[in-house]
């Protein structure tokens, strides 16, 4: 027991050491950046100093310049768009993939269409969606949907195809109907793969968000970045980029927590 505690303590010390290293690396990077701007090596027209970005961040709490919205409005708009697209993709894509993987006729029916749509890059849908639904929430959510939908379908499809035959046989000898086997054996056994797909979808939807907003929007983080360019405000651009990065990180973290609960049996 004592040994174990010592070992744990040792590991914690090691973790701390590595964390300090990581912090030092980030701080050094910021410091060099700051110095380069202060000494005029980098022009303030093309890049803003980290301190300036921080100042802008606090300013954007209440200021709507230059893009017409505060940082909170922009975050809220972007979140609404990306989450709408992302969740619609999960709700439609994951069950669809599973059903296709389980029921052959459905697979044969949908797969050709899916294979045609699959290689089209999500942003190639932008012009069409603008024609169809304008530049509102629906349009952007739809573009994000296209980017998140494909990995949801493919992974849950592959996951359910990998269901162990002996598990299916167990349920079959107990007298389960095909649908019951699908529900009680196929779906749970494909969950780890489905989650891997949703994780890819999360990354895609966050990435496509910026593209969607860069091209057609009137608020949001991507739109803020674009306005920053038009008004030559590198601080606003960098603030937008960092906000997107940090939000993406938070999402992945929340998602990992949810995944650990749902497929607990894999992580224990």
């Amino acid at each position: 027991m004592n040994n174990n505690n010592l070992l744990k303590k040792g590991r914690r010390m090691g973790d701390l050491k590595y964390m300090i290293l990581s912090v030092i690396s980030v701080l050094t990077f910021l410091l060099i950046w700051q110095l380069l701007v202060i000494f005029g090596v980098l022009s303030t027209r093309t890049i803003a100093a980290p301190t300036q970005v921080l100042v802008t961040f606090f300013e954007k709490f209440y200021s709507t310049a230059p893009d017409g919205a505060t940082i909170f409005t922009n975050i809220a708009v972007s979140l609404k768009v990306s989450l709408t697209g992302f969740f619609s993709a999960i709700i439609i894509g994951t069950p669809l993939g599973m059903l296709m993987g389980w029921y052959k006729p459905l697979d044969r029916f949908i797969r050709p269409l899916f294979e045609i749509i699959r290689p089209i890059p999500p942003i190639a849908w932008i012009p069409l969606t603008i024609l169809w639904v304008g530049i509102g929430l629906g349009a952007k959510a739809m573009i994000i949907f296209f980017s998140a939908f494909v990995p949801c379908v493919i992974n849950s499809y592959t996951g359910i195809k990998l269901t162990s035959q002996v598990h299916v046989s167990v349920a079959k000898t107990f007298g389960a109907s095909n649908f019951k086997i699908f529900r009680t054996v196929g779906v749970p056994s494909s969950m780890p793969m489905a989650f891997a797909g949703i994780r890819i979808a999360l990354g895609n939807s966050w990435g496509t968000l910026v593209a969607a907003e860069l091209l057609a929007a009137n608020a949001g983080l991507g739109y803020m970045i674009m306005m920053g360019r038009q008004f030559v405000r590198p601080d606003v651009i960098i603030l937008g980029m960092l906000t997107i990065g940090i939000l993406g990180f938070i999402f992945t973290w929340i998602f990992t927590k949810i995944e650990n609960v749902v497929v607990r049996w894999r992580t224990l």
Binding site: S164, V166, H167, S189
Partner: peptide, 11 residues
């Protein structure tokens, strides 16, 4: 049916 191969449901 108790199968030869491990057939407990891992989840």
């Amino acid at each position: 049916f108790a199968f030869q191969e491990p057939s407990a449901f891992p989840w």
